[in-house]
């Protein structure tokens, strides 16, 4: 444990923050500009993982395990989300023969 902490602390915190920000931004951009639902799901995963990494980094630097607990929660939640999300996508694909986000325009008044 001690070993891992020192290893994590081997990289400066700023680098973590910058890296995670970039990764998160890539995720957001992916969600916004891509039209394939599967890729959007993947982008969301990217965003979640960016947050996870940042939580782990802060946790190590501050010596507070709470952050790591959050990471586990998020991973579990992401797994559930993917399961449900992929199921929805499959259903959508069955109905529309497409995984284009534009085909999901029924959600309106």
């Amino acid at each position: 444990m001690e070993n891992i902490v020192t290893q994590i602390q081997g990289v400066p915190l700023n680098h973590y923050i910058i890296f995670c920000s970039i990764m998160f931004a890539i995720g957001v951009t992916g969600v916004l500009i891509r039209r394939n639902v599967i890729i959007i799901m993947m982008s969301i995963e990217l965003m979640l993982n960016a947050v996870n990494l940042l939580l782990a980094a802060f946790s190590a630097y501050r010596g507070d395990p709470t952050g790591q607990v959050f990471v586990f929660f998020i991973m579990a939640l992401a797994a559930a989300e993917v399961a449900v999300g992929l199921a929805i996508i499959i259903m959508v694909y069955r109905n529309t023969k497409s995984v284009d986000i534009e085909s999901l325009s029924k959600l309106r008044w």
Partner: peptide, 17 residues
Amino acid sequence: IRQWQSGYVGFYMMMMV
């Protein structure tokens, strides 16, 4: 106002961001 509720998920996400 209901024009905003376009039904396009992409638009919703954009609005969210």
